[in-house]
Nucleic acid binder design. Sequence first.
DNA 1: ACCGCCGGGTGCC
DNA 2: ACCGCCGGGTGCC
Length: 870
Amino acid sequence: MFSSRWRFGSDRYSEVNLFTDPYEANVETLSQAIRAAASEEPDVDGSVLFGHLKGTVVGLRYYTGVVNQGEMVGLVRQPENPYDRNAVMVANIYGNQVGHIKRELAAAMAHVMDKNLAKVEGVVPSGTKNQFTMPVMLSFWGKEENKNALKNAFDNLFDGLMESKDGEKEAAEAVGTPLLPHQKQALSWMCARENKSALPPFWEKRGELYYNSLTCFSAKEMPERIRGGILADDMGLGKTLTTLALILTNFHNGKPLPVEKCEEHSSPIKAKTKPQEGSSAGDKAEVSQSAAGPQCSNLPQVEGICVNTTEVVEIVDKSDNSTSKGKKKANKRKPSKEAPVMLEDLDFAAALGGSAADTGLKKKKKTGKKAGPTQSVESSVIESPDELSARTTLIICPLSVISNWLHQLEQHVRSNVKLNVYLYYGSERNRSKAFLSSQDVVITTYNVLSADSGNKSPLHSINWLRVVLDEGHVVRNPNAQMSTPIQNSVKDLWMLLAFLRLKPFDVREWWNRVIQRPVTGGDRAGLQNLQTLVKCITLRRTKSSEVNGRPLVSLPEKAVSEGTVLRNYADVLAILMRLRQHCCHPDLLAKTSSDLGAAATPGELRERLIDKLRLVLASGSDEECSVCLESVHLPVITHCAHVYCRPCIAQVINTEQEAARCPLCRSEIKANELVEFPQEEMEEEKSTNSDKWRTSSKVQALMGNLLRLRCEDSSIKYLVVSQFTRFLSILETPLREHGFSFVRLDGTMSQKKRTQVIQEFQSSAAGSPAIMLLSLKAGGVGLNLTAASHVFLMDPAWNPATEEQCIDRCHRLGQTRKVIVTKFIVKDSVEENMVKIQRQKQDLVEKAFGSANAERKTSRIDDIKALMEL
DNA sequence: ACCGCCGGGTGCC
DNA sequence: ACCGCCGGGTGCC
């Protein structure tokens, strides 16, 4: 037999036996009791409203009890329930069972109800006709002194729910840009990470002790809670915007940053690189009046640690695969259904923490601290001015992204919102602690941070509200030696965890013993633990992630902004290509819109990819396919702007069963997204660009040589070789002008035409062509051009072997003369570096004979590094 | 429940 | 295949 107690209203009705006789006389009594309870002030005994929580009633189909919209329901503990000793039964006002509180929530409520921490009321706001589940709004009432105990109980019991990553949160009004769904998710998650104070991963409460299930360590004191996390989204998903939204939305306990609004349309951002003249009194004027100190009594105040923070958000670009690509298995329990619970739970926590909880005021006349009815919530949170220290968010980032932060602040903060932003940079930076801590945002760089170390540094002595580490991978252990990428990643991770002060892994020894060594030793459990750990504190989405069944970003963005300069090396190639073209002749520069970064529509993207492809193809250049290592055949370009032979990349896509990735940058690639060069444009390309002919230094150098040599010996024949067929076209003009007879051989010609041209050139008859304009990669092996004894290489190739081959076409059996090769290299240009690289390659081939081909795989990227002198 | 979750059937391209 | 993927069975506490 169940004996249950209504925990409703006043104590008079606290003991009602629901189950002895549910359908008889008691019904009347019970409903009367409930009505009486509802009409009565529940706080006659001094109870206050702790907060609201939205829950779910499940199992409706098993019971007959019905509820009307807006009706109250009874919540009855069922400690004897054979399925769950935490069960909380839901009954309508007649005492008929409606269903049960969903299991996870019931666990929390059972604790609260059994410990008598609060009385719980339930109202069903909607969905009363639902077949399976219905929502229920729960409110918690209790004695002021129980508030903290209740909060702790919920924090721990909701540990699992809290980490739900599926909830969304709207940004504060001050954020002018609407957030995308995945950004709202990130905001929700970041707020939760900051506001909640659940136990860190692997910690649980066992009786009076706190126990770590990994280290088997137990402590009387609660382990320090970690209030930050790692937002490890892919590039281009809006980490900066989301972080700005966080700064404005979650000033404290889920409340937005109190910001001053001004009428005029002045720039909201006052990023002051120059220190303010005048005294600290002048500095004080920067503090807006409504900038009340937060209630930070429950925030840990730690002194003397390198980075002194209460709340930390880390932003890294890509967490390493070893940690983020966890086995699906570990994903077993994803409480997505609980998302609304979590959101409500946030409000609940805010209500618990807030001294003048607005929800409370609505229903109750609040006793004690009297808040005037016209007083706004913002003005009611003003606290002592010495708490100002926790107002400021410190953003640390590489120098190169400072402008991005400032720009995004400008762009996304409403223009009528006055946000104090200070750029803590440059020798004249204002080091006043009072000034800095009066700012809303202080931005600085890692270099300034390390230069500013020591006691005098304000960066280290201010109690920041939160610290944001942008490009977190920059934070590295300075003692770290070169090691494998995986080991480095695990080390990086340790740095981040230590920064977050995740006990006990902030102590290196524990980290090594429990995580690092097992993981590097290939221990499965170790890896599992690492994954669990990272998953607890990390939110990571890729561009292929989906929100509500839709991809995070539309296609064009996917190809854009993918990675660093070297990773997106097609851009570098394109630039180098232009430099090389410019060395030959200014008109070679294809007139392209070319900036891949600005493509807005798939159509535009395609246009730009074709432009890029045009650059690469610009005549038989020796660009090679990274798959087959030969020059590209049937070239296609991926959305990440890398060029391959179509058959090669098709094979890659077919071989990788799941999502195929670009061999160069690991972006996801799809067969139907490969862009090829449209045939018509190929022709059109040829005809354009011949308005006015002009010369170039290489043209003049070549003509000078030819004219001089013609005087010396008119019987010599010449090969003029370039990678750029358009350059060959340009050369035709002065050759004709000076009466040279020439032929041309390039890759576009049919086999028949080639044979004809070669025969013409090889002929020793009088009037036969003296010059062949030859595209570097034209023609196959076996091309016999022994008639030529002088080769002009107009532009250097990446691979010396390509040039070698070309020279060999005339330097072969049948050649009677000494072959002379002339290379034209523009001084102080990219070409000089290319020649250097060619020499190094030659050396390499000579030293490591046979292994040259294996080396070639990575060589192009290394070439670029060398060219850039990286 | 127009879901999520589970476990069985199944398996190149 | 000690997988992934598919589709059917299923569903509170």
